[in-house]
Simulated assay, not measured.
Amino acid sequence: MKQSSAKQYAFSDAEYEELRRIIEQSVGIALASGKRDLVYGRVSRRVRALGLSSFAEYLARLRKGDQAELEELVNAMTTNVTQFFRESHHFDYLRETFLPEMVQRHQRDRVIRIWSAGCSSGEEPYSIAVVMAEFLDAHPGWRAEIWATDVDGAILRQAEEGVYPMESLKDVSQERLRRFFLRGKGVNEGKVRVGKSLREIVQFQRVNLIQPWRIRQSFDAVFCRNVIIYFDRAHKKQVVEGFADHLAPKGHLFLGHSESLHGLTDRYQLIGKTIYRRRD
């Protein structure tokens, strides 16, 4: 049995494999064998925070069904790298093609619904909200609803607060900054907060994509970018099929730049760069 050297805690192969299984079963993240040091670094912080003396004690706690700690583990292992208007071509398509089509199609209820799945700290859904707010200025009587979800409860609380360092808005125009964001003063100098008009459009909720979804409504589009890349094939298929079930006719799915539906499902048509439309 191998153990890591020069580390505070012993970390056996068996312990690593058990943690890999727990993480995959909990959130669908399939960790390669080369992620051992990453797992050690993130989980050892939890071992230390709980005042435990070993990974064995930590695993014993998880085996006893400590759901609060399981959520902490998920939070620790979830990668949250994002920014405003990341992969800008998606927002160009949203403004120039998708929203005009929706206005033509939704003459009855006049509500456009978008799901940001794997929303991380909120930059994606708030970017969507900016584009929708600008577009709907010219279409009075229309409403936008954005449902933003993530498996990481801590990052969702941060997203709901909507406070960001100024440098994270480097791709946001001055006009948009003035209209949609509040600049911090005093102790909050160098920070901005998303304005009320955007925060009212976005609803945040914790959702684990590989567990059953309690969703009754359909969506015109789903943004799930740079999320399924971490799943194994079975979970990828499960998630994108689930999105198809919850998309309205001709609904759109936006994926990340390294993601593809090739070989996973035939329920979508590729219509742009990592932009798919549900086949009806």
Rank of each mutant, 00 (worst) to 15 (best):
F84V: 05
F84Q: 00
F85C: 02
F85K: 01
F85M: 03
R86W: 11
E87F: 06
E87W: 04
E87P: 06
E87V: 06
S88L: 11
S88Y: 08
S88N: 05
H90I: 01
F91V: 01
F91I: 01
F91T: 00
Y93S: 04
R95E: 13
R95M: 06
E96N: 14
E96Q: 15
T97H: 11
F98V: 02
L99F: 06
P100E: 06
P100Q: 11
E101R: 15
V103A: 14
V103T: 13
Q104N: 14
Q104G: 15
R105K: 15
R105Y: 09
H106S: 07
H106K: 15
Q107F: 10
Q107A: 13
R108T: 10
D109I: 06
R110S: 11
R113M: 08
R113Q: 12
R113C: 13
I114R: 01
W115E: 00
S116L: 08
G118T: 03
G118Y: 05
C119N: 04
C119F: 05
S120R: 03
S120F: 04
S121L: 05
E124M: 03
E124W: 01
E124A: 02
P125I: 11
P125A: 03
S127P: 13
S127C: 08
I128C: 01
A129C: 12
F135C: 03
L136D: 04
L136Q: 06
A138N: 12
A138M: 08
P140I: 14
P140L: 10
P140N: 12
G141R: 13
G141N: 04
G141D: 08
G141S: 10
W142F: 15
R143L: 09
R143N: 10
R143I: 08
I146S: 02
W147Q: 08
W147K: 09
A148I: 07
D150W: 02
V151S: 07
V151P: 05
D152T: 07
D152K: 08
G153I: 10
G153K: 09
A154I: 15
I155P: 03
I155M: 13
L156C: 12
R157L: 14
R157Q: 15
R157H: 15
R157M: 10
R157F: 07
R157K: 15
E160I: 12
E160P: 07
E160G: 15
E161D: 13
E161I: 09
G162W: 01
G162H: 02
V163Q: 04
V163E: 09
Y164P: 01
M166W: 06
M166S: 14
E167Q: 13
S168N: 05
L169Y: 03
L169F: 09
K170H: 13
K170F: 11
